[in-house]
Amino acid sequence: MKCLANHVKVDISTLKGVLKIKKFDLAIIGAGPIGLFAANYAQLHGLKTVIFDSLNEVGGQPQMLYPFKTINDIPVYQAITATNLITQLKKGLNKDTSIVTNHSVTQIEKRNEEILIDDKYSTRSLIIATGNGAFDPKKLPLKLDSEIEKRIHYYVRNPKEFSGKTVAIFGGGDSALDWALELSHFSNIVLVHRRPQFRGLESTLSKLRQLKNVKIITPYLPKQIQIEDNQLSVTLKRMGNTYLQKICCDQIVVAYGFKANNRLIRKWGIKLTDARIAVNSSMQTNLPGIYAVGDAISYPGRVPVIGVGFGEVQIAINAIMRDLFPEKTLTIHSTSM
């Protein structure tokens, strides 16, 4: 009897574990603007959806890194701040969408027609919308003491904290240019890039060149930093020769980008191309039922802007609908007759 009782107890425990698994039509990993738009578009097609994010709030990099930034390439909006964009995307979500924050998805297992996520969630389809991945910034490649590190920043959430300061910004992409432009309203700016050409928008660079409180130094890299007279004294080395130049500033903002961490994606068996997820014309990965969109993916000619990611979402979800409900007549867009 004792052995039988133990056997029954194990069966009941296993059954409880199965009952706790929450079932969905679609799971989305990543709650940035692309992931939130995917949840909104999934609702139009009646898909029961869950969206995961490792951060404690939705919004992804725009919300965490540049909430103040005005975005000019979103369809419909001539101009909208990152915070307002996220607010609008959140506003459209209803009870058919579950949001799970502070949750890093670590395990994905394909079981017949379902995908099991972290042994707690079961979904019929999956979209990866993780963007550039985890918030792991590329650090300034110099030896720094604790006092200097206090003055070096990899995120700017409140530009007014730099009011009245001289701020050196290192980088040549959109983040560096956007931060330089926004901080120029409150601070003196020294923008340092290792190449003569910038990767960011020419329109932003043009505005910066017209500002008297913005100094642009190229092509230089930081070689040494120390504190002198309560300021950061930064020695710059010109690319291609041994010429050195020194600048002084109160704070430093580093905009060298973020390290893509695709270790888990590789573990799941998803094929990568140049550290990005490889997809076909339907945004499907090499694994059936698993799709990817936004800056997490790679294909020839892709442009890394939010508007393109929105279009990729529509392609992916239409493909998912055809796969899950082949008997249905699919409404491609909300204005269809």
Rank of each mutant, 00 (worst) to 15 (best):
Q251R: 14
K165A: 00
A292L: 01
G60N: 00
N213M: 03
Q245P: 05
I315C: 05
K120R: 05
Y256C: 07
I117F: 04
D96F: 07
P62Y: 01
L126H: 08
K110G: 10
N213K: 03
F198C: 09
K139G: 06
H153P: 13
G307S: 15
G311V: 07
V167K: 00
Q226K: 15
H7G: 06
D73R: 12
K91A: 12
T273H: 12
V293C: 10
D96C: 06
C248R: 15
K223Y: 05
Q61W: 14
M283A: 04
K48G: 09
I152R: 11
L183W: 08
V234E: 11
R157W: 04
S334G: 06
A278P: 08
L19N: 15
V192M: 08
L183K: 10
N6A: 13
Y243D: 13
N72T: 15
L140W: 08
A319K: 06
Q251S: 09
Q43P: 03
M337Q: 15
I320N: 06
I317L: 04
L55M: 08
L36H: 13
D73W: 13
H7F: 10
V58S: 11
A176R: 06
R322C: 11
N132V: 01
I34N: 08
L272C: 04
I117L: 05
D145I: 07
E202M: 14
A134N: 03
K223N: 10
E202W: 13
G92W: 14
L15V: 07
K237S: 13
M239H: 06
T285R: 01
S281P: 04
Q314F: 05
W268F: 00
V234G: 14
V254I: 08
P75L: 13
K23N: 15
P33Q: 09
R199Q: 08
K246S: 13
I317T: 03
S282L: 14
K143I: 11
V313T: 07
